[in-house]
């Protein structure tokens, strides 16, 4: 790990998460250093969305510890949480733009809520960020008038409008064509270089993961299989990782008793 910056921005220790009686995360340890682009990779149901929700402070850990920018999520007061949230930006999978507002108002919302700036400054700052994501001039459109790729970029503009230290990106390439998603990857790299952000990307898109990541964390069935630089992950002898990398279907394990029980029992 990076010796110059001893304090990781994100620290997760022994995070265990249950939904009802089902455990979805098992003893997850996770750390992200400043300036790093970390990709969290994993198939559907691997627990990566749940991990992300904990990193965003949307879920509070019941067991284990989550520290973001030095703030312990479990014990943070509303004020601390609010301060933390002004320092991080999130771009959600579907964009999550507010459909009742124009693109410009969407991007300006964090500024209007958290800073006492005059309207001209807000307008200039939000338009600047729209320019960064190549959406200059689109501020007066409604989200419903945008294409999928434009929505993602507008969401990105909203995420970076407060110049956050930490940027989270959920499935940047989901539902986009290859060209647009490649452009988005370029944009993420540029953001890191230009704005010195630490970026966490959740994806299952291999190509984009390899292109943008400094290091990759592979999650499977709620457990971290490995964390390491791209080359190391590619060369990993772990079978599940190779399955993910080579798009091999999981072997179906047949347990006859379990199978019969599922078929016959009333409420299995």
């Amino acid at each position: 790990m990076n010796a110059e910056s001893p304090q990781p921005l994100i620290e997760v220790e022994k995070l265990n998460v249950w939904f009802g009686r089902r455990q979805v995360l098992f003893d997850v340890d996770f750390a992200v250093m400043p300036g790093e682009i970390r990709v969290i990779m994993g198939g559907s149901g691997s627990g990566k969305s749940t991990l992300l929700r904990h990193l965003l402070g949307l879920l509070r850990p019941r067991s284990g510890r989550v520290r973001i920018l030095g703030t312990d999520i479990a014990s943070a007061s509303p004020e601390e949480l609010l301060k933390l949230r002004t320092q991080m930006g999130v771009s959600f999978q579907g964009g999550a733009l507010f459909t009742s507002m124009t693109v410009g108002d969407n991007v300006a919302l964090p500024l209007r809520e958290h800073q006492k700036l005059d309207e001209t400054t807000v307008r200039i700052m939000s338009r600047l960020k729209l320019e960064v994501v190549n959406l200059g001039g689109f501020q007066d459109l409604m989200p419903s008038q945008l294409s999928g790729g434009m929505i993602k970029r507008a969401a990105l503009a909203r995420a970076i409008v407060m110049d956050p230290k930490l940027l989270f990106f959920d499935e940047p390439s989901a539902g986009l064509d290859p060209v647009v998603s490649a452009e988005l990857d370029e944009l993420i790299l540029r953001l890191r270089d230009a704005l010195r952000m630490t970026i966490v990307v959740v994806t299952h898109e291999l190509e984009s993961a390899f292109k943008i990541a400094d290091s990759i964390t592979v999650l499977d069935k709620g457990r971290i299989l490995m964390t390491g630089p791209v080359a190391e992950v590619r060369a990993s002898p772990n079978e599940r990782i190779q399955d993910l990398l080579n798009r091999r279907p999981r072997p179906v394990e047949v347990d006859t008793d379990e199978y019969l029980r599922r078929l016959t029992e009333e409420d299995a």
């Binding site: 965003l56 402070g57 609010l82 999130v90 999550a96």
Partner: peptide, 16 residues
């Protein structure tokens, strides 16, 4: 519908 499209989450992470 805001909940379904993660707009409620977006509000929360913006700090609203």
């Amino acid at each position: 519908s805001m909940n379904v499209s993660q707009e409620v989450d977006a509000l929360a992470v913006i700090g609203i």
